[in-house]
């Protein structure tokens, strides 16, 4: 079995802030493997233990090579990182196009695994777009996977209903954080991954036309980012516990919570 895992290099959202002048400060933020993709990497690594070959595909800046090492440390055979100046403005459509080119070049694959969303854009579009481009079925929101023979059984949570879907391979599956508990990747484990396992490619090497990825040629662009103040307040209630409880209950009723 051959598996392709999509793993994205993303800034850590807990370290993103707005500058006093209201600009989004992403550049200084530490970067990492998208947390959702870790679950896909973990699942692929487990399948690799029973003989699967695992290739990681990613689109990102040159620094993403370091992130690829971390992704490889979960247990994968190699990683292909597509980069270039166009990456900074790439939209989901462009990313999917490039990832599809990687999938064709490195393929064929029986299974493509990815995280449901990426923490930077939160579009949740790339896996589906990729499936469309590859002409395979797509199932999103996997909470459990049962890979066997020519098909895969996917358990997914839809609201409070659990659904079990069986799809024929090849297929693209995007996974939730309920799928598994990714192992801890120690600093030493990352250091032990040789850089030679990360192949960096550009659009031309993938047989793609760079002109189609120029900022003007993309179908979407982010025109503005602005902070939104969420309204949160607090109020300290004082007095005897019984009084506080009564006052609290009254307040909650007043708000319509109780």
């Amino acid at each position: 079995m051959r598996i392709l895992v999509l793993a994205k290099h993303v800034p850590d959202t807990t370290e993103i802030r707005f500058s006093p002048t209201g600009e989004l400060m992403v550049r200084q933020a530490p970067t990492k493997v998208n947390d959702y993709d870790r679950h896909a990497l973990e699942e692929a690594s487990r399948l690799r233990e029973s003989g699967a070959e695992v290739v990681i595909a990613s689109v990102g800046p040159p620094e993403a090579a370091k992130t690829m090492k971390e992704a490889l440390a979960y247990g994968a055979d190699r990683a292909v990182l597509a980069g270039g100046a166009w990456v900074a403005d790439a939209d989901p459509e462009a990313m999917a196009e490039v990832l599809a080119a990687i999938a064709r070049r490195e393929g064929p694959f029986d299974l493509v695994l990815a995280g449901d969303v990426s923490e930077d854009g939160y579009n949740a579009l790339v896996p589906g777009l990729l499936a469309a481009k590859l002409g395979t079925p797509y199932v999103r929101g996997a909470t459990a996977l049962g890979v066997g023979g020519a098909s895969v059984k996917v358990t997914r949570l839809v609201g409070d209903v659990e659904e079990e879907v069986e799809v024929a391979l090849p297929a693209v599956i995007s996974v939730t954080r309920l799928l598994n508990s990714p192992r801890v990747i120690s600093t030493m484990a990352v250091m032990k991954v040789p850089m030679s396992k990360v192949e960096t490619v550009d659009l031309a090497e993938l047989g793609l036309d760079p002109a189609a990825f120029a900022p003007g040629a993309l179908s979407t662009r982010v025109s503005a980012v602005r902070p939104v103040q969420s309204k949160r307040g607090n109020e300290m209630l004082r007095g005897e516990p019984a009084e506080i409880a009564a006052e609290l209950a009254a307040k909650l009723r007043g708000m319509g919570v109780l």
Partner: peptide, 19 residues
């Protein structure tokens, strides 16, 4: 090194890296 730690400890290590 084996990655054999639970989520609470994994989280501490991750937060050290990130934050």
């Amino acid at each position: 090194e084996e990655g054999n730690v639970d989520e609470a400890k994994a989280l501490v290590l991750a937060q050290l890296e990130r934050n």
